[in-house]
Design a protein around this nucleic acid. Structure first.
Length: 297
DNA sequence: CGCCAGGAGTGGA
DNA sequence: TCCACTCATGGC
């Protein structure tokens, strides 16, 4: 199936992010091809994505027939995942006004805010990543996914779906402790899975709320979800354009690198800085995170 | 060895 | 509302 590409889209930048030196088990990048597992109608399907002139080509591997409804689902998934329907030009206009950040338009041009389409996965990943370095966080996620996630083998490689809330709701703290999860991380994760499994939390429910503030409040009411995670999730899954993961250590480092702040306690300065990027705060955060890794090789 | 990492909960002032 | 303390473990 073909998915048309917008202007200001860089396959290279997007795949670079997906394969940015961490061991992420949720997708694989091989050369100029992306492999991604997607749950469609309860079934685990492996999608292969390549770039053609002006569009993305997505196909199932091993090849499999799709009805229109499933095709639409996969199409929408990829559009949401890679944020393909956003016009980045207004964002770049704002960046160009700032001498410190203008270079990003050229260096990271066409980079899309890569999302986490599934809400449960996004929240779980946030909990896993809290207060530990990313290398270790990806390691924890891989252990969890390889033990509890659905697997599909293709051409000698194993691909996984993030574990379902039903499965994780039945896991014990001790099992997760054995995988080096801290006691609190384990408890948060199981509690979260249970809330999803019981239907107390869902993307539909969140989308049904009237505004960002109420969504944030509902998220924070979950054990283990603080302001950082709530904003991270609003940005990565709900696609809130103005969500800032306040207190994020990577964000503070990037702001210091770009001489926006001198030390990490300048909260007001950060607030003033972001005011200039109204409606694009999430993208700015994403690009600042991107900057931490330097230009793509 | 010490500090840090894409934090959060709790309890006390 | 705002600190200080605690959790917990690998990476560097």
């Amino acid at each position: 199936m073909r998915i048309p590409l917008p202007t200001d889209f860089s396959f290279r930048e997007c795949t670079w992010f997906l394969d940015r030196g961490y061991d992420d088990c949720m997708q694989a990048v091989k050369g100029k091809t992306i492999f991604k597992m997607i749950r469609v109608d309860g079934r685990a399907l492996l999608v292969r994505i390549t770039e053609e002139e002006g569009f993305l080509e997505a196909e199932l591997v091993p090849n499999e027939d799709l009805n229109t409804r499933r095709e639409e689902f996969i199409r929408n998934y990829i559009i949401s995942w890679l944020d393909l329907e956003r016009d980045l030009r207004p964002f770049y206009e704002l960046l160009l006004k700032d001498k410190r950040l203008a270079y990003m338009c050229a260096t990271f041009g066409g980079l899309r805010l890569i999302g986490i389409v599934d809400l449960f996965e996004a929240l779980s990943w946030s909990i896993i990543g809290q207060q530990i370095n990313l290398t270790f966080a990806f390691k924890l996620k891989r252990r969890l996914v390889e033990k509890y996630g659905e697997r599909l083998d293709f051409e000698g490689e194993a691909y996984y779906l993030f574990p379902s809330c039903e499965v994780l709701a039945g896991v014990t703290i001790e099992e997760l402790r054995e995988m080096q999860f801290s006691r609190s991380k384990a408890a948060y994760l199981i509690g979260l899975a249970s809330a999803f499994a019981k239907g107390e939390m869902s993307l539909e429910m969140l989308k049904g709320l009237p505004d960002v503030e109420s969504r944030r409040a509902v998220l924070i009411a979950l054990k283990g979800i603080g302001i950082w995670t709530a904003n991270y999730t609003l940005m990565k899954t709900l696609r809130e354009p103005s969500s800032i993961p306040h207190g994020d250590t990577g964000l503070l480092t990037a702001l210091a690198n770009h001489a926006v702040i001198k030390d990490r306690s300048e909260v007001e300065k950060i607030e003033r800085f972001f005011k200039k990027y109204k409606g694009w705060e999430s993208y700015l955060v994403f690009y600042l995170w991107r900057s931490l890794a330097g230009p793509a090789a």
